[in-house]
Structure formats: structure tokens, C-alpha cells
């Protein structure tokens, strides 16, 4: 970074506290879920001695189920925050897939990662490519994991439990049999792992290379920019019918809770 060129760094408050807390709890839960999940499918070497001296698989499964619950509750809360939070909170859940602008942004972002574009665009929220990836994995992927996860959990709790009635029955029937649910649950885990690898790498990379802050934003909530050019606020475009509809509904409900640092200072 060139030190000689002085500029002001405008900042935008993007991620409200609940979103940030959700992010980090999610990160922790997903880490625990992936590790324990792996060992549920491929257990650790045998424990010696009496069965009643150990509860290793039990603890691993407990950790998995507990994290699963946390993830699920967090997801529900996050769904609520789609409506209650600022417009950035909606971005992940209602991406403007039906606007030309969005896809142009995706293309531009791909070209940027391929070192074809010299400068990345500046976004207040997520860039379009990130929106797409997160929408697929963090919304539909997690939903899939939560539903299949509860279906598998319900099997152990047993018929008659709400987990079984709400999830296991229809999910197992849909997939054919329990083993298929296991297989897809595990395959999707790997999808999440792939996402996590890219997500962590790109967050760090963009923090260094691009024109906005990344990691610190998810801690403080504030997006810093390194130059004055106008940042795109994709969430504001609201291209899709759904986004427009929900957006207008919500804006009337919230009456402009999006703030800038300048507002704050005043």
C-alpha cells in the first residue's frame, strides 16, 4: 500500500451486532460439526477396557448434536434478522439474481480473481460473487444440513418425538432410506468445508488486496474503504421482485435504520 497518498477513509456500518455474533457462533458451530461429524462417520481407534469406563462416541455425538442445535437456533434467529435487521442483513437471503447488474458484478469479480481486472469494485456489503456463494451454501446448504441433520437426529430420539415427526419421517421417505440421508448429509458437509476454505482465504486476501476492510468488519461491524470512489451497495439495487417487495415492506417497517458513521458522530 502506498503510504504517500493520503486519503480519508469513509466507513459504513454494515454488520449489526446480531449478524456478527451469528457469524462467529456459526463459525464455531460449523467447525465443531465438521470435526465431530467426520469422526461419527469414521470413528477414532478403539478404546480399550470396559465399555462403562468410556463415552467417547457419546461425547462426540453430544458435541455434534449440541452444535447442531446452536446452528439451527442461530439460523432461525438469523432468519428473523432478515426482517428485523438492516438491508445488509437481507443481502444473503434475497440476492438479486434477476438483475443484469448482479451478474455483471459476478463476472467482474471472477475476472478480478483471475487477475484480469486490475481493480476490484467496491462494495458496502458482499460482492455479488460472495453473495451467490453464501446464498447457496449458507442459506440452502445450511437449511439442507439442518433438515437432514434433524432427520438423522430424530431417528435416534425415536418415532413420536417432534424431531422424528417434523423431520425424519418425510425426509427419509423422500431420500428412500436412512443411509441415503447420511450420505447426502456427509456430501454436503464437504461442500461446506470447501466453502469455508475459500471464504477464509478470500476474506484475508480481500482484506489485503481490495479496497475495503473485511475481517475487522466482521468484528466491529464497520466497513472501511481505502479510497473515496463510490461504493456499490448491492442490497440497495433491489432488482428482483422479491427483494423489492420484501425491501419495501421492511423499509416501511424499519424506517431507515441504516446508518453511516457520519450520522453516528452527529
Amino acid at each position: 500500500m502506498s503510504q504517500s497518498k493520503m486519503h480519508s477513509e469513509p466507513a459504513v456500518y454494515v454488520y449489526e451486532a446480531p449478524v456478527r455474533i451469528w457469524h462467529w457462533i456459526n463459525a464455531l458451530a460449523i467447525t465443531v460439526l465438521c470435526v465431530t461429524g467426520y469422526f461419527i462417520g469414521v470413528p477414532l481407534p478403539t478404546m480399550p477396557g470396559e465399555a462403562n469406563d468410556h463415552f467417547l462416541m457419546g461425547y462426540i455425538r453430544f458435541a455434534h448434536f449440541a452444535s447442531g442445535y446452536i446452528l439451527a437456533v442461530g439460523f432461525l434467529f438469523r432468519l428473523y434478522w432478515v426482517f428485523a435487521g438492516n438491508h445488509h442483513a437481507r443481502q444473503l437471503f434475497l440476492p438479486p439474481f434477476f438483475t443484469r447488474e448482479f451478474w455483471k458484478g459476478v463476472l467482474h469479480e471472477l475476472r478480478w480473481y483471475a487477475f484480469i481486472e486490475k481493480e476490484p469494485h467496491k462494495y458496502v456489503g458482499h460482492n455479488p460473487l460472495a453473495v451467490m456463494a453464501m446464498h447457496i451454501v449458507m442459506v440452502w446448504g445450511l437449511l439442507f444440513m439442518i433438515i437432514t441433520g434433524f432427520a438423522l437426529y430424530g431417528e435416534g430420539i425415536g418415532m413420536g418425538s417432534w424431531q422424528y415427526e417434523w423431520f425424519s419421517g418425510w425426509v427419509i421417505e423422500l431420500f428412500g432410506q436412512s443411509q441415503d440421508v447420511h450420505t447426502w448429509h456427509r456430501l454436503c458437509t464437504w461442500l461446506v468445508i470447501c466453502f469455508v476454505i475459500m471464504h477464509v482465504y478470500l476474506a484475508i486476501r480481500e482484506d489485503i488486496v481490495s479496497r475495503q476492510s473485511m475481517i475487522s468488519t466482521m468484528i466491529s461491524g464497520w466497513r472501511m474503504f481505502r479510497d473515496d470512489s463510490k461504493a456499490k451497495d448491492d442490497a440497495d439495487h433491489g432488482g428482483s421482485i422479491m427483494t423489492t417487495f420484501v425491501g419495501s415492506l421492511m423499509s416501511s417497517f424499519r424506517s431507515g435504520r441504516s446508518r453511516t458513521k457520519a450520522d453516528d458522530i452527529r
Binding site: P43, L44, P45, T46, M47, A51, N52, D53, H54, F55, L56, M57, G58, I60, R61
Partner: peptide, 11 residues
């Protein structure tokens, strides 16, 4: 089942 919970498996 207790052996499963204990992490005791036939390898």
C-alpha cells in the same frame, strides 16, 4: 450399543 457409545469397535 454401549460399545458404540464408548467408542469401542471391531476393526
Amino acid at each position: 450399543r454401549p460399545h458404540f457409545d464408548a467408542g469401542q469397535f471391531v476393526e
